[in-house]
Design a protein around this nucleic acid. Structure first.
Lengths: 181, 181
DNA sequence: ACCTGAACACCGTTCAAGT
DNA sequence: ACCTGAACACCGTTCAAGT
């Protein structure tokens, strides 16, 4: 057995660690996932993980960053003309699986700079996209920042609380009807 | 030095532990507050704490329960006729100090039954109160559940994200103008 | 540059023993 | 019923040593 494995490219191993972490964070949550468990799932020892990532929180930040990049790619590829309620429904569906991560994101953003930065960037990008939709529909420019907050808070709320599908849809409809006008 | 202190009434000591926990949860956050530190602040040993509370999470649930009871007392004592924006501003202000606890509440609600119950109860009571205000203003009954969700999600959002006072006020105004009609 | 075995300080919780 | 000292299993992280 080799004591180290330089046969595997470092970028690949970074990815393996990140994937193992994502999978476990999803299924078990951040707190209940130990660094040892992530390392085992990635086929390395715990201390090797620290060569690739500065710590558990930075690894979490990297996972979130990867997911948000994917999310924005999907969102930007959608037709900007589509009805608001359809876009919102897609957003909720796309982020639904990440529910436990979103809660953790807010928790850790309070104490970790790395995570606060990811969180901040996400809100900024979402705000820009909602802003474009509002502007296209002729919403009063001065009121837009407040409306953007209400929309993104409501989306976050939908993701953080278990609602029945019909209730969820009703919230989306009400947002489309009352806020995007 | 007495090995135990039956001189202090058990209800008092329970309260001492709860107060110490609340204070530390506020200033340090749930994760960074160790049981040992709570015990020290309350003047007991860690294992004594376990005689009064089943664990750290149950203690957290008790703290949240105490705070929500206070919050609802304050809220119910307000004039139901007052403008919506004033009530909302009061709500935000009253809960602002509890910001870190609110994030933790959502995090732990996913895995702890005790905390999920407190969280659930809070949302139900808030929904009832918002519902009364909406009904008084003649809002369409069928649309009320969705609007209630948007309002409570937005309040939660305001509490979980640092907004400048003016932005915060703008969000409140927009809610009053667009949702309570 | 990359990886390991072994250790470190700390955590929430438990338990046998006391009064 | 109430409280303690001492221990338990586990945690994230570090470090000296290897290749």
């Amino acid at each position: 057995m080799p004591s180290n494995r330089p046969d595997v490219a470092p970028e690949v191993k970074r990815q393996e660690i990140r994937s193992a972490a994502r999978s476990l964070f999803f299924s078990e949550g951040f707190d209940k996932t130990s660094v040892a468990r992530i390392a085992r799932a990635a086929g390395v020892t715990p201390n090797t993980l620290y060569w690739y990532y500065a710590g558990k929180e930075q690894l979490f930040a990297a996972v979130v960053e990867e997911l948000t990049a994917l999310f924005f790619m999907g969102l930007e590829n959608r037709d900007p003309q589509e009805p608001v309620r359809e876009t919102l429904a897609w957003v909720i569906e796309a982020m639904d699986a990440a529910q436990p991560l979103i809660v953790t994101l807010h928790e850790k953003a309070r104490t970790s700079d790395a995570i606060a930065a990811v969180h901040e960037r996400f809100h900024t990008e979402v705000a820009t996209l909602i802003g474009e939709r509002l502007r296209a529909r002729g919403v009063d420019e001065a009121r837009m920042p407040a409306i953007i907050h209400i929309v993104s808070f409501s989306v976050e709320g939908l993701l953080m609380h278990e609602l029945a599908p019909a209730e969820r849809q009703a919230v989306i409809d009400e947002m489309a009807a009352r806020l995007f006008v």
